[in-house]
C-alpha cells in the first residue's frame, strides 16, 4: 500500500513515472477521452480546512476516472466537533473508501492517518507541513511548459517562510539538479533547514529581497502570496506587497521563455495585466492538478490496468 505523505518519500525516478502517467491522463482530464479505470472505487475527501483547487481537482480527477467521491469540507457537520480524534475519523472513513485525501490544520496529521488507515492516504496539506501533490503538479507544469525538469534557474518569490508549497518544491527541484534563488521580504525568508538542504546539494543560487535582482536569469518564477496577517502594521504590509508585485514591466525584464507559476489563490501579487502574457502559466498549472491527481489516484488505488 502506497501513501502519498511527503514528496521526499519519492525518488526522482518515481516522480518521473508519476509525471509520465499524468501525461497520459491529460485528454481524459479535459473530457476528450473517457476512462473507467477506477469504476466502483470510492475516494474519501476529508478537508478539515478550507480548500478550493485541491478539493475540486481531486474530486474531478476521481470522477474523470469513473470513481465516486464522499467526504466533507469543514468540520461543522461532523463528529469532529463532538471531540472525535483524527485517529477515529480515519479508522471510520477508511472503512468506507478505497483511498483517503486528507487536509488538516496540524503538521504531521497525514503521517498519523497512515497508522490508522487500511487504505492509502494522500496528504492534501497538513498545517504548515507538506503538500506533495501540489509539488508534483508544479513539477509537471514546469516539465510541460519548459520541456525539461533539470538545469533550470528557478526563483521562488514571496512568503517563503510560511508558504507550505515552496518548501517541498525547493527540495524537489534541487533533487532534479536545478538552481534555486530565494526572494522574500525580511522575516519571511526560507527556513534554515531548507536552505541547508539546498546548500548540501550544491543547488542554492542566491537569496535576496528584490525580484529585480534575479529576473534576468530566471527560467521559472514561482510567486506566492504574502499574507496581510503576517504584518502587524498594515502600512508595512502595503510597502512590502508593492515591492513583490509582478507586473508586465517586471516580466519584460526576464527572458522570453520564462514562465510564471503561482499555487493560487492570487490576491494582488500578480497584476491582472500579466494574465494575458505568454509567460503566465498559473491557470494552466491549476488545470494540471487534475491529470497529476488522476495519476496519483490510479497509482495508489489501482483498478483496471487499461486506461
Amino acid at each position: 500500500m502506497r501513501h502519498v505523505i511527503s514528496v521526499q518519500d519519492f525518488s526522482a525516478e518515481e516522480i518521473i513515472d508519476i509525471l509520465d502517467r499524468a501525461e497520459t491522463m491529460v485528454e481524459i482530464a479535459k473530457g476528450n477521452d473517457v476512462s473507467e479505470i477506477l469504476k466502483g472505487k470510492v475516494l474519501a475527501a476529508i478537508f478539515f480546512e478550507p480548500s478550493t483547487r485541491t478539493r475540486l481537482s481531486f474530486e474531478t480527477a476521481m470522477n474523470r476516472l469513473g470513481g465516486g467521491v464522499i467526504g466533507f469540507a469543514g468540520t461543522e457537520a461532523t463528529s469532529v466537533v463532538k471531540g472525535e480524534t483524527l485517529a477515529d475519523t480515519i479508522r471510520m472513513v477508511s472503512g468506507y473508501a478505497d483511498a483517503v485525501v486528507l487536509r488538516h490544520p496540524r503538521e504531521g496529521a497525514a503521517k498519523l492517518a497512515t497508522q490508522f488507515s487500511d487504505v492509502p492516504i494522500l496528504n492534501a496539506g497538513d498545517g504548515a507541513g507538506q503538500h506533495p501533490t501540489q509539488t508534483m503538479l508544479d513539477l509537471f507544469t514546469i516539465r510541460t511548459e519548459l520541456g525539461r525538469l533539470e538545469g533550470l534557474n528557478i526563483s521562488l518569490v514571496g512568503d517563503l517562510r510560511y508558504g507550505r508549497t515552496v518548501h517541498s518544491l525547493a527540495i524537489a527541484l534541487a533533487k532534479f539538479g536545478n538552481t534555486i534563488n530565494l526572494v522574500s521580504p525580511e522575516g519571511l525568508e526560507m527556513p534554515g533547514e531548507v536552505i541547508s538542504h539546498l546548500e548540501d546539494t550544491g543547488r542554492f543560487g542566491k537569496a535576496c529581497h528584490s525580484p529585480e535582482e534575479i529576473i534576468a536569469d530566471t527560467d521559472m518564477l514561482y510567486v506566492t502570496r504574502i499574507q496581510k496577517e503576517r504584518f502587524p502594521d498594515p502600512v508595512e504590509y502595503e510597502k512590502v506587497a508593492g515591492m513583490y508585485r509582478v507586473d508586465p514591466e517586471l516580466v519584460s525584464r526576464g527572458p522570453e521563455h520564462m514562465i510564471i507559476l503561482h499555487p493560487l489563490p492570487r490576491v494582488n501579487e500578480i497584476t491582472p495585466e500579466v494574465d494575458a502574457l505568454p509567460q503566465a502559466k498559473y491557470f494552466q498549472q491549476a488545470f494540471n492538478a487534475v491529470p497529476v491527481r488522476m495519476a496519483l489516484l490510479s497509482m495508489v488505488i489501482g483498478g483496471q490496468s487499461n486506461v
Binding site: 496540524r106 503538521e107 504531521g108 498519523l112 497538513d126
Partner: peptide, 13 residues
C-alpha cells in the same frame, strides 16, 4: 516543541 504538531493533540499515539 512544535505546538501545532499532531503529536501534541489528544490522539492515541
Amino acid at each position: 516543541s512544535n505546538p501545532n504538531c499532531i503529536s501534541n493533540q489528544n490522539e492515541p499515539i
